Amino acid sequence: MNQPPDITELQALPLAELMGQALATKLARRGTSFSLCSIINAKSGRCSEDCRFCTQSAHYQTEAPVYPLLDKAQILTAAREAKKNGAGRFSLVTSGRGLASADLPQMLEIIRTIREEVGIKVCASLGILGEAELRQLKEAGVSRYHHNLETSNEFFPQVCTTHSFSDRVATIKAAQNVGLSVCSGGIFGLGESETDRLSMAMTLAECGIDSVPINVLIPLPGTPCGELPPMPIAEILRSIALYRLILPQAAIRLAAGRESALSDFLSSAFMGGADGMMIGGYLTQRGRSPEADRKFAEDIIQLWSI
């Protein structure tokens, strides 16, 4: 059995050496795999939770769109577009503490139809759910449930007070108990320390997470996090490399904020451990064009293969 890395020793390494070790680990453990996924904001706004970074929270005055669960035709169109754009997975995301029971039958029908007519792998991010609902999602065709930790157990009360870190871990465990793979990560730049980021990484490792999305805060007007300063690029790259070394078998996928936070250094993240991206936008924020992201992924794979 592989021994966990000595975190203190890794923290002491210069950035270039740390990133070199992370890339070597990525290539040794995961080869040149590069995964693309896409999401749809299937139900937006008026969320009861007070996550301080989120424009969809009903606690804050923002310009986030508000609408009920989209109809099947709209979601099928988006799923087909995601597959055409090269995404291997398509995730249905809804706002709210958890999917409303009234929406569950429609959601199950949508999932079944995507699997039958589009043929893309289906993920779901529907908030805090129990085993009964999660089992129905799996039976309908969901293969992976997405539920971010967001930050460390220690820092979580500074980010959200309407539910707890343990609530999030319990949902992850419930999903795993019914046989679902779990995608879980968080957001860098919420005001947390490196110790907090490493604490979250260790929790993800303890939970056996095999897909880790890393978002970098986009400070959005109207939210309590709207005035936070940007996270230094070197700190972002260091954290990504540490996540790779702590989670050597997991897909480390960059999501919201990667373009604005890393800018010209985006490729550096993939030379330091990351090996996946979310394409096509992030709930209420647009991303780069899928064509640009596909070309970027091809270029990175070529660099890895040299």
Rank of each mutant, 00 (worst) to 15 (best):
L266T: 14
F156G: 05
L149F: 12
R135W: 01
P213E: 11
L129C: 09
F188G: 00
A78K: 01
S305N: 15
T284M: 02
L237M: 05
L36A: 12
L137Y: 00
F165C: 02
L13V: 14
T25P: 03
K138V: 05
G130L: 01
F270S: 01
A87P: 11
Q249W: 08
L99F: 00
S289D: 10
A241G: 11
C123Y: 01
D264C: 06
L134I: 06
A250Q: 02
A292N: 13
E9W: 08
G179K: 06
I236L: 08
V182H: 04
K43S: 07
C123W: 00
I128H: 07
P224C: 09
Q249Y: 09
G119D: 02
L137S: 07
A250F: 04
H59R: 08
I279R: 06
T32P: 10
L99K: 14
A124V: 00
E109R: 14
A234L: 06
R80P: 03
L108I: 03
G189V: 11
M277Q: 09
A256H: 06
D275Y: 08
S57Q: 02
R288T: 13
M277F: 07
D50E: 02
Q176H: 06
A234M: 03
T25K: 11
I110Q: 08
F34L: 07
I306H: 12
A269N: 03
G208H: 13
A256G: 13
L23Y: 04
S35N: 14
R52G: 13
L10P: 03
S101Y: 02
V66H: 07
A22W: 01
F165A: 04
T113V: 06
L15W: 03
P68G: 10
I233P: 02
I128V: 12
G86L: 02
N41G: 08
M231D: 03
M1N: 09
I111D: 04
T113L: 02
N153Q: 15
S152F: 11
I172N: 00
N2W: 14
T161L: 07
Q74P: 00
D210K: 14
L27S: 08
D71T: 11
L104R: 15
Q136G: 09
